[in-house]
Amino acid sequence: MSQRKAVALISGGLDSMLAARVIMDQGVHVEGINFFTGFCVEGHTHAIRRKDRARPKRNNALWVAEQLGMRLHIVDIVEEYKDVVLNPAHGYGAHLNPCLDCKIFMVNKALEWMEEHGFDFIITGEVIGQRPKSQRKDTMPVVARESGADDRLLRPLCARNLEPTRPELEGWVDRQALFNFTGRSRKPQMDLARQRGIDDYAQPAGGCCFLTDEHYAVKLKDLWASRRARNYDLDDIMLLKVGRHLRPRPAFKLIVAREEGENNFLRGYRKRFVHMEPVSHPGPLVLVDGEPGEQDIRLAARITGRFSQGRSAAMVTVQVTDRDGGRRTLEVPPLDAGDVPREWYV
């Protein structure tokens, strides 16, 4: 019998790493697939924040693949994923995370890849009960069915609690050597990792993407409300990861860099926005998102002064650059801390 091939969804966390490893250990050829949605926590924030640069940075999915000695295919799904975020048939989790639809979508993409490349089945690191909304005993068949993968979707970490799948029935893998993990505990995974000699792995807090982050979700909803439209592009969702966001008036929002790394990052976007920078004192680059009027620009300049080193000076000079590149300077009194209400912070 020729060697069977499986494609493993790799998030970079421990569970999907173990699932792939367990199936490799059964003699199946496994390759990994990792999806880039634009909301992934990895990568960008390291690149942006200077203080994060000191820490060793790695792409966890690549790292997992290297540890396992497995190929990894990274797929850009930014465009197609929008429909999952904007119109999830099964709704959202605690924040704007459409986890169930996301799983269905990713397994379906893996299925397409599998068929194109002549692979036999798909594996995921899902565990029954691990996540209250998306990883439940009753959602497992939903993912299998709605993704179209059906009995070619194997969850090695909890397979023994589920109906046997095709790889098990055909004897491509040994069901008895699979697992029956349930619940939120991480202990069974950690024990299994130790058993298989895996002692270094990423510990994602909560979810694998920014959509599970409360503050991020608030900023994304604010963006939609201000545009009166639910949509986004990659730049929008990147910018929500960076800087302080203040909305003093419905018509505009300010994105204020917090440190040098963010300053450099925002500089890359300055042609798309009216932007300002103090010139009389050191201070942050500030992007103005929306359609600010003249009064708004003045207020924005005063806020820019507030976040500059001239915050206690009588006046600061702020250079304002329009989208067409036209420049002028404004001399304004910086806003007092007390005049920046909490509600302005998005």
Binding site: F36, G43, H44, H46
Partner: peptide
């Protein structure tokens, strides 16, 4: 101007 993992994806 691209942030990781996009440069890796484009290389791939």
């Amino acid at each position: 101007g691209l942030f990781c993992p996009l440069p890796v994806i484009r290389t791939q």
